[in-house]
Simulated assay, not measured.
Amino acid sequence: MEKHYLKPDEAVQAIVENGRRVSTQRRSVTLILSLLAGFYIAFGAQLATVVTQDAAAFVGRGVASFLGGSVFSIGLVLVVVCGAELFTGNSLLASCALEGEITWGKLGENWVIVILGNLAGSLFFAWLMFESHLWENGNLAEHSIAIAARKCQLPFGVALIRGILCNWLVCLAVFMATAARDIAGKIFSCYLPIMAFVTSGFEHSVANMYFIPTGLLIAAQTDRTIPGLTWSNFFLGNIVPVTLGNILGGVVFVAFSYWFVHLKYRRGATPRG
């Protein structure tokens, strides 16, 4: 009978085997797939912005955040089911490098191409949404600016910690989606951790590549000056610490941990205790 899911050790091995593509995949293919991931995460971010623009007034802030997280999860669902290269999820490729299946140089090259592609895709999508003028409906303009401003005003250390917590959950979502053997399982695996990180208020670098530029574009169009909401704060005050946090969260708490438990010990002693 066909298995409905992979056990954790099997999922780690599947992630390692999938990571071997980094050694042979053309850079142009990686770039296109990373652009698509930027679009997909931006779809989820835009949907979350629409849903949460006025929900708190009716159901409270906690439930509004839950609703935003629920719809935002469509971004990772599209990445996983349709296939794309997402920087945060690619933190799991560290397990492939730890296993010696790809070099650390190849891993670094993949990360650079993917994060630049994710950034370009997110910026293009932000421009598309700006040009659609949908932000003129309801409270979307004010809400988009407020989201962007809050993110740009975060202290470096706070943004770093929130980035760690975020990608810990994102990589667990990818881990579980890899373990799932059918579409329904993959969707549910993506939904729960993504809903949790958005509802909690953690920081996702690629999502912020959409949220903050959208707020910046709308603020400039409507002649609003918001303290801290600048392009330099977007890059240096948010994307840098959040990206570092995302790397630490995904690599240390998921990629390394499961590689160490299930692959390193498989070749050596059985763990004790």
Rank of each mutant, 00 (worst) to 15 (best):
Q53T: 09
L31T: 10
Q53N: 13
A37L: 06
D54K: 13
L35N: 07
L47S: 04
I32F: 01
I41E: 06
F43H: 00
V71K: 02
A45Q: 03
L33H: 11
S28H: 13
A57V: 09
R61H: 08
V51H: 02
F72Y: 05
F58E: 10
R26D: 14
G44N: 00
R26K: 15
F72L: 06
A56E: 15
V63L: 15
R27E: 15
Y40S: 05
Y40C: 02
A45G: 04
F66T: 06
S65P: 10
T49R: 14
I74Q: 11
L47D: 03
G62Q: 11
R27F: 12
V51I: 09
L35T: 05
F43L: 00
V71E: 04
A64H: 01
V59R: 09
A56C: 11
G62F: 14
L35M: 00
V59H: 08
L35F: 05
T52R: 10
V63G: 11
V63Y: 10
F43G: 01
V29A: 15
F58D: 09
L31I: 11
G68R: 04
A42S: 05
S34W: 01
L31A: 12
Q53S: 13
G68K: 08
A42K: 03
V29F: 11
L33N: 14
G60T: 02
L31F: 12
S65Q: 15
R27A: 13
F58I: 10
A37M: 00
G69A: 07
V63Q: 11
T49Q: 10
S65G: 12
V50H: 01
G62H: 12
L31K: 10
S70L: 11
A37I: 01
L33T: 13
V29P: 12
L35R: 05
T30Y: 05
Q53A: 13
V50Y: 00
V51Q: 03
R26L: 15
G60M: 03
F72K: 02
R61N: 07
F66E: 05
G38F: 06
T30N: 07
T49F: 12
L36R: 08
S28N: 12
F39W: 07
A37H: 04
L36D: 09
A56S: 12
G38L: 06
S65A: 15
V63N: 10
S65C: 12
V50R: 06
S34I: 00
V71Q: 01
S34G: 01
R61W: 08
